[in-house]
Amino acid sequence: MMVYLVLVTSIAILLIGYVMAMSSKELVRLLISLELMFGAVFLALMPLFTVQNLITSAFGIAVLTIFTSGGELMILIAAMVTFSKKFHSFSTDDVTAGGEL
């Protein structure tokens, strides 16, 4: 029962992040929504730790996920700061398709 509760919570947080990403008008909010989605992914990994044979693999997946997502978000933050310096704006309306400047 607890495993199901964790999974349902994870899905709920993921969808809240999804709604936030789709309706955000600022890049900071987009970053926050991505972090919420990664948080949901971390939570979804938790049931793997309940299977005795999978604990080591689960820990490996967790470490990989945390460091990969952390690196990805740091790159996004760097891109946002560069965007802000160039356009003096944090609005998603100023972001053009395909990353064109």
């Binding site: 972090e35 945390i66 952390g70 978000l73 933050i77």
Partner: peptide, 23 residues
């Protein structure tokens, strides 16, 4: 599952979360 707690709390929230709050 303390190792994952430490990774999320100090690496993810401590680094990325703090930078997001600062931004």
């Amino acid at each position: 599952i303390q190792p994952v707690f430490v990774l999320i709390a100090f690496i993810f929230v401590g680094a990325i979360g703090a930078v997001t709050v600062a931004l």
